[in-house]
Design a protein around this nucleic acid. Structure first.
Length: 588
RNA sequence: GGUUCCGUAGCUCAGCUGGAUAGAGCAACUGCCUUCUAAGCAGUAGGUCUUUGGUUCGAAUCCAAACGGAAUCACCA
């Protein structure tokens, strides 16, 4: 709608002899209770017009009508100038922009971006919080790609550390050689089971020591199990073959399990990083920082950075014994990623509980003057809470990812069967439909909310299938496809329609906004913007569908026009949902 | 205690680069399937936008303070 802003700027120049940049003219959509599609707020210009808001609006309106061919009419209500754009302009948009296959196709912007997401620990299965992370990361990657970036999806697997040793140790003690095959358990669940066992036994030992008179703190340190776990970690770091071999075995179980879950979720990665390979990185960066005077060494030999001038604290970056801490690794990994891909931007999809960590990490990289440091971004999302509060894996109050997905499919099946529309479907088509709908409901539920906000999930209240939901949008798509298939073909030619019904015009106006919406979502790293847009589109299409007959339109030409409009709507719904990682069925 | 984030209808959320009478969905109530898929459409009801100040022609939106909630401030990751 740039031409309106430019014309309005010209109008102000000629009418009031004042220069206003077109970009400074605030255009908004006309509210639906008024005539027109575009509204200019005239209050800001009363200063230069020295007239009332009404008169100013009328002046500019007259000018636009006289000088801009697309402007057909206008009305002024208080300080609002509502402009009606001629239907010919909207039809032009439809046929030259929206209908062609190239609509909203990515235009490479010359930039490369890495999106790191998922980044699981290998000692327990994925839960609902990980699902939000995975869906966000995958969707943001799709959105950035659609916005013109070259995208690398990365997964940094936390496959080492004390937590994995805990699972390994418990398995050695109480596993009796159990394997995924022998137990029938998915590998990640099997390993998770031993993590829980470790914790239970560890607590028993703590209680026993406390009964002997030790304090809680002492007991936690002195329990034999935790000492064994620490010893095992040391052995792992020294390359003890027995420990390494068990570690490899158990990790391979977990990976097989994760792969299955990722497949169900429909997410994937271009590059895997493993902490077992990266945990020693970063030490050369510490040296570099010392040399540059960014870091300093304390008397005990530990190395720190002072961030008090930036409103933060002093932060340890290397222990006195020369071993890494979390941030040491992350410094090294950031460098490794940049060396591998040389990306312009690097997005970390990590929960907001790590806000402080990333603030520090990015600040350090900037102070070191690292290439790419300005392109770092922490996509910080809110935790998923249950009505009872936070999910805690040790207390068993987590919503397991695999269980939840299975439940969603079952619920989708029940809903669908109750509606009795799938009698003609084959078994394979049915089960694939249930998966599509169940995952659609879950994904949409999680993605429609602003990533920054915390999310409340009530396991007792099933995810809806009606209203502002994934299945509603999927249904709208299937509904359009059904009409299109009944039409047995339609012309691709431009139909010489002259006037549009209001629902038709509204649809074109909304479809026309899709490319801008993608950009907006990319800038804000927000799938929620896409989710809300697609919902609005589906809602509007259903209104159109209800108000106007397509196949029984007044004449052949109108019928073809409405079929084209319907096909365009289906296309945008499908593309929009794909940006969320949600599939859309041909029929349901 | 310091820092950061959040507070919109009974519930879940949009709206936040300041603009018209604050919008959806769920739940409740009312209509609409002999007509292209009723997982739909239309309607009724539901609001001190946490509170108080400030800036402004104009504030849910910006600023400040208070209240309420969350996270974080580890030689854990």
């Amino acid at each position: 709608m740039n031409f309106i802003a430019e014309a309005a700027a010209k109008a102000i120049k000629e009418l009031y002899n004042t220069d206003v940049a077109a970009a400074d003219i605030n255009l908004q959509e006309t509210r639906k209770e008024f005539q027109g599609q575009i509204t200019i707020v005239t209050f800001p210009f009363t200063r230069v017009s020295r007239k009332s808001p009404e008169q100013t609006g009328a002046d500019i309106g007259e000018y636009l009508k006289a000088n801009v061919s697309q402007v057909e009419a206008f009305n002024v209500i208080k300080g609002f100038l509502n402009i009606s754009i001629a239907d010919s302009h909207w039809l032009e948009r439809l046929y030259t922009d929206i209908v062609p296959d190239t609509f909203a196709a990515p235009q490479y912007n010359g930039q490369k971006v890495m999106v790191e997401y998922s980044s699981p620990n290998t000692n327990k299965p994925l839960h609902l919080g990980h699902i939000r992370n995975n869906l966000l990361g995958y969707s943001v990657a799709q959105i950035l790609e659609a916005a013109g970036y070259e995208v690398v999806k990365a997964n940094l697997v936390n496959d080492r550390g004390i937590h994995i040793c805990k699972s390994m140790l418990a398995w050695q003690h109480w596993g009796n050689g159990e394997t995924p095959e022998s137990s029938g358990l998915k590998g990640d669940h099997l390993v998770g089971k031993y993590y829980v066992i470790f914790d239970k036994e560890y607590k028993k030992q703590i209680d026993a020591l406390k009964a002997e008179g030790q304090t809680e703190e002492e007991a936690k340190k002195n329990a034999p199990l935790i000492k064994d776990a620490q010893l095992m970690l040391l052995q792992w770091e020294q390359g003890d073959e027995e420990v390494l071999s068990l570690w490899r075995t158990m990790n391979s179980w977990v990976y097989a399990g994760f792969e299955q879950t990722y497949k169900q979720l429909g997410v994937d990665f271009d590059k895997y990083y493993y902490e077992s390979n990266t945990y020693l990185l970063g030490k050369d960066i510490i040296e570099e920082g010392l040399a540059k005077g960014v870091f300093f060494r304390k008397e005990d030999g530990s190395i720190w950075i002072d961030l008090t001038e930036d409103g933060l604290d002093q932060k340890l970056v290397l222990r006195a014994d020369g071993t890494s801490v979390y941030i040491t690794q992350d410094l090294g990994t950031a460098q490794l990623k940049y060396n591998d891909f040389g990306m312009d931007k690097s997005i970390y999809v990590v929960g907001n509980e790590q806000d402080y960590h990333f603030k520090v990490l990015f600040l350090i990289l900037q102070k070191l003057g690292k290439a790419g440091a300005d392109g770092l971004f922490h996509l910080s999302y809110g935790m998923v809470d249950l009505p009872s509060g936070k999910m805690k894996s040790r207390e068993g109050t987590v919503v397991d990812a695999d269980d939840l997905m299975a439940e969603m499919e079952t619920t989708a099946k029940e809903h669908t069967e109750a509606l009795g529309k799938v009698e003609s479907f084959g078994e394979e088509e049915k089960s694939s439909l249930y998966h599509t709908i169940g995952m659609g409901a879950l994904k949409y539920f999680l993605l429609k909310v602003d990533p920054k906000k915390r999310l409340l999930f009530d396991p007792n209240e099933s995810v809806d299938f009606q209203g502002h939901t994934g299945p509603f949008i999927q249904y709208t798509h299937a509904r359009i496809k059904s009409v299109l298939s009944r039409a047995r073909g339609y012309t691709e030619d431009k139909i010489p329609v002259t006037t549009l019904a209001s629902e038709e015009r509204d649809l074109i106006v909304l479809l026309n906004r899709f490319p801008d919406t993608i950009q907006e979502a990319a800038v804000g790293y927000s799938p929620a913007i896409i989710a809300n847009y697609v919902y609005e589109l589906a809602k509007l299409y259903n209104k159109f569908y209800h108000e106007h007959s397509i196949l029984q339109a007044e004449d052949e030409q109108l019928k073809h026009f409405r079929l084209q409009l319907s096909a365009a709507s289906a296309k945008v719904i499908k593309k929009g949902m794909a940006l969320l990682g949600i599939e859309v069925p041909e029929r349901m």
